[in-house]
Structures are given as C-alpha cells and as structure tokens.
Design a protein around this nucleic acid. Sequence first.
DNA 1: CTGGGCGCTT
DNA 2: AAGCGCC
Length: 713
Amino acid sequence: MDHPRKNLKTKHDDRVILHFDLDCFYAQVFENKTPSLKSLPLGIRQKSLLATCNYPARRLGVKKLMSIASALAICPDLVIVDGEDLTPFRDVSKRLYALLRSYSWNDRVERLGLDEVWMDVSDMVEYNLELLNRNDLEHSWFCLDKEDPEKGFAFDGRGFAGCVYGRDHFGLEGTDDAELLIRTKLVLASHLALYLRLKIEEEGYTTACGISTNKLLAKLVGNVNKPRNQTTLLSCGPDGEENVRRFMGSHQLRKVPGIGGKTAAVLSDFFISGSKPTPNSNSNSNSNSTINPKEISIADLLSLLKNPPLTPSKLDSLLSPLPGGQGTGSKQILSLLHGHDPLPVKPARSLPTQISIEDTYHSSPLTSLEQVRQELVKITQSLLKRLRTDLWDDDKKRWVARPRTLRLTTRPRTTDPPRENRGYGYGYGRVSKSQGLPGYVFSSLSAGAGGGIGNGNGEGKGNGDGENTAAMAAQIHVTKRLVTETLLPMFRELNPLGGPKDKTRGRGYCIGLLNVCVTNMDSVETSGSGGGGGGGGGRDIKDMFTSAREFTVYDHSAADQAGYDAKTTQQPGIEETIDDDMVAEEVDMDSDITSPPRGNKNDDNDNDNDNINHQQDPVLDVCDYEQDSRIPTTTSNDYFHIEDDDDIWDDQEDNTWNNDGQSEEEDMMDHDYPRDAGGSGEGINCPLCSHFIPLFALSAHERFHSMEGEEGD
DNA sequence: CTGGGCGCTT
DNA sequence: AAGCGCC
C-alpha cells in the first residue's frame, strides 16, 4: 500500500530508500574482465571508446576527461578499447541488479542506466525495527528473510554504518520518542546498505550508497562519499528538515536529477535577471556579469524567491519557452528544490520497454541509398542479436516477449552551427516512423540454436558448428529481408528525395543518424492458468544467488573479519559526522569540466567486433600483484577515481554556460579520495616526483619515469 | 563540436 | 511523433 499523500510541506516520506552507484562502472568491468592487464582508468571516454592507461593518470594532473589524442600524447602506452559493444557491461549490470533484487522483499528495485539502482527497503527496515532489542543494541541482528530468522547478519545498532550527513546528537538508548524511531530506521538501513555493498564487493565491484527517505535525497547524498562509502542523510527525525534544507541548498541547480540543461538555464536566467534589480543581496551590486549560471545554487534561487515565493504558475510561465512545455513539470521542480520527491521506486521489470540501436554519422553523413542500406543492415544485425540475448529464453526455448512495433528514426546532419543561445526549442530534426514488426523475425530467429554470432558462448551440445552457421545464415537472411522490405521503404517515406525535408534539394541524402527501435513489448505471459495480472516476471532471480544467501548467517566476530574493517574502511559504530559547510564543497566536486572531450566519429564502426585490445605490457608482467583477491581491498579506483563516466557529457551543450572555464580546481582534490578509505592504502612516495604511489601501480609508475628519461623530448 | 541507449511526457 | 532528461 502506498502511503497516503501527506502535506508536502511538513513531513518527508517515511520510506527508506537506498541508492547504489557503482564506481567507475566501465572501468571496473573492464578491469575485472582482463585482470592480466593491470591498468588504471584514465577516465577517458569518447563515444563508446573506453580508454585505460597503465600508469596513474591522476598523478600527472589528469583530473577529468581528455581527448584520446592528447591522452596518447602524454601516455604512449595508452590502451584504447573499442567499447562499442556494450554486452559485457550489460551483463555485469544485470548480474548485480539481480543480486540486489534477490534481497528485496517488495521487488521495488529500480535501475537507472547500467550502474545505478534504487531500492525501497521500507518493509525490511520496519520489520527489523520491531525485532530490535533496545537493551542490547550493540548485538543486533538484521533479519533478511521473514521465513528464516537465521538468515541475516549481526550489526552494532548503536550507530550508523558509514558516514552521516547532519548532526546525530541523540543517543538511541532509552528513548521512545517517535521521531527517534524514524531515525532508527535509517540506522537499520545504513547497516543493510553496508551489508549489500559488501555483497557487491564480493562480486568484484565497489559502490557508493546513499540512504535517505526518498529517491532524490538518496541519490544525491550518495555522492557525498563517493566512490566507496555510504552516506546517510538524516532527513527526518530531529533536525531532519533543516538538514534537508541545507543539503539541497548547497547543490547547484543542475545537480538535481530532473533539472536538466534546459530547465537549469531557464532558472538561472531568471535568477540573474531577478537579482539584478535588487542589489542588496550580494556585496557587489552591479556585477551581474560575474554570475556564472553554473554556480547558482538552490539556496541562491530560493532565497531570491522568498517574497514573493516561487509559485508553480510562475514557474510554468518561465518554462513556457521550452518546446511543447516539455521537460520536468513545474510542480515537480518545486518539489525537487525542497528535497521532496514523491515518486516511488518502481517495481522491478523483467522486460525493457524498448530496445534500440543507433549510430551517428557526423564526419561523413550518408548520402546515398546504398550507404543507408548498408548501415541499416549493420544496425539491424546488432538489434536482432540483442533481441535474442534479451528476449529469448534459452532454457525454455521461447520468447519471453515479442515487440510488436518497429520504429526507424533518422536525423539529417545539421549543417547549421550548433545553435546559439536564445530560443530553447528548435527542432533538432529527429523524425521517426513506426510500423508493425513482421512476425517472421521471431520464427526465424528462434530456429537456430545458441546465439553464437556475437558472444561466442560454447553451447556444448555436440557439434554446435552446423547449427551455429545455420543460425547465422538465418539471422542474416532475416536482417536483409527486414531492411529491404520494411526499413528501406520507411526510410524513403521519412526522407523523400526532393521533398521539403531534403536539404540537399534532390541531390541526395544527408543522414547524420539512424536509429532502429523495437517497442511495444508483448510479454508472453507465463503459461499458467488464470493469466491474470501482468505482474513481475521471473522469480528465478532468487535462485541465481542462492550461494550468496546460503551463509549469510554470521556472528559479530565473523562480521569483523568478513568485511567490516578489512574490506571496507568504515567501521560500525564509528560514524562520521559531516558538518554542513564541508558538504557544501563536497557536493559540487564534480562540477566542472576542464577540457571538453573531442574527437571525431568516423563511421567505420563495426559494431560487431568485440575485439578488446589487450596488449600485454611486458613491464607490467614483472611486477607481482597480489593475485586473486576477488574483493578489491584498495583498488585503483579508490585512488584514481576520475569521475563517473556518464556525467561527463553534461553541461556542455549549453555554450552560454561557458563563461570562464577556470576556477575551483584545487580544493576538490581531496574529495576524490574517499574520506575514510585512506587508511589501508599501501604504497610509497615516489623518490622522483614525490607523489604517493600505491603498490600496485609502482612498476607502471617507474616505467613512466624511465620513459621520461629516454624518449623524453 | 561530440555519445549511445533508455524512460517519461505531451 | 518528438521533445527532455538520465546514465
């Protein structure tokens, strides 16, 4: 039951939400996949190219992204990996998602992208709240399974696990205060979060986690101690409201999920124009030109809007320039600014709503039908492969869902300049056309055995060879048929030669983007009788992690060994309280982008090639790294965490926001190192450059210096 | 001067 | 169908 709508102003939700964020997801997957290559993520990503570098990039002053070219210039050993094929990343993502899901009681586990997960653990927490023995909090037990009280873990309930935002000045013992009860839920949730994070570390991946009372706050507060710790935001209980206000206020507008570039631009414009006539607020009165829209915080905006306060209707009129009144709704924006977020964690879905493959052709747009056809073949080929891997149940030999419609989207290559400011909406020229997806796609695709085309899984059954090639042939046939019979005609309709959209006036096409998408999933309801509701899908997920749950019973001493102090660096009972002012700096640590990524997309993309280019570096082999440890104790990511790969491209689209590129650089260095993850780092200070170098990176670092000497210019 | 997906919304 | 917003 969803809980009745409360007055937005007063109480925050009494839900308990966790938000997990995998640290440097792509880099971690890559490193785990190729453990022989002891490389360090350089944080370069361009298009889907992943780049790794075998010396500590950060020590060279590389903080964020850089172009491949400049990276190669300073790092000749750079290993460029074609990351166009995202399958390995998708696989890991699914695995970890299934892991978390296997612990959920209500199946409210929502994924965002490949590397973030929300989890609504209200029910688990409330259940365990009742189990709590107030007289012996130190030896508490978190029960993970109602039916089996033995399944669970011990924890010290006297305090939070991990870090805490906001002052926690109340002891827990002996209080019956209702407000403190809510706080106790957060205590419980923090221990659950730690437990789950350790489970994920057992799989070889490190995460940050945010714990709070709604999705927004959980996600935001998880950033405070990235990449490998957790933070609980005391958004309820004593000081809860104040904590939320300060926490939200310290964020830049753009940092709030839901406020994208367009919305933030509108709000910033409003702030700047609004603060001009009232010179009282800032010390410098007529210096409106110095206001950088990027730096406007929520506190700024809200303070300006004290009287008259910002109303939804006012906001509506501000946002009206956005095309079609799109984007986040005004009422939701207002909620977000105050740290409210009523949106529930969505129940886990077994099926995606759509699957699409697209490619861009910027440097050389497609100009002939033949080119288009070839690209459509490539794209369709990949798409059909995805259909098999995602929608085909190989155990039961059947489709779990059939998409019913096929959509083709094209975009002409714009010859116009990226567009100046003013005028938020301009059709960027995506046009699409939908049509039924022919049924032969499924019959033909199901014919062949293993989906061996791309993934090359051994299917083991006797001679898979003949079957495999048969499957390939079938797939190619389907691909060609789909392209010539369906997609190409659609394309012609979208781009009639000489038509109004033909920018080349009959001379040919100029296509900058192709996207083929299947949607409208027709889920094959699990055989069964009544076939009633479209409930959550496979329950098999729990089976996948039985091993993970088998020995979840461990006592306190076991917990100490199993992870509390060794594997993660935080200890139960030692809470870290962060003062508000510090956090104000921390939360915008990932604000700037020093140099925009550049590069050209050449269209010779071979989607199908998974060739990962691991060249063994002989020098690296010399060094004996600690073998084996599945759980990274002090991995490269702790020390050389660059940034969340995916945040990188933000903020760049608005040229108007690039007033002065430089500023806040120095003070954010610290924050890239987890506050409390430092202790266990083993390493030395390099005698040459005096940088601290972790042991695992030593040989690479040596090599760096030796190269400096030899071929150094 | 540039990415590939996805979901939500109108 | 075509936006925005998220990673």
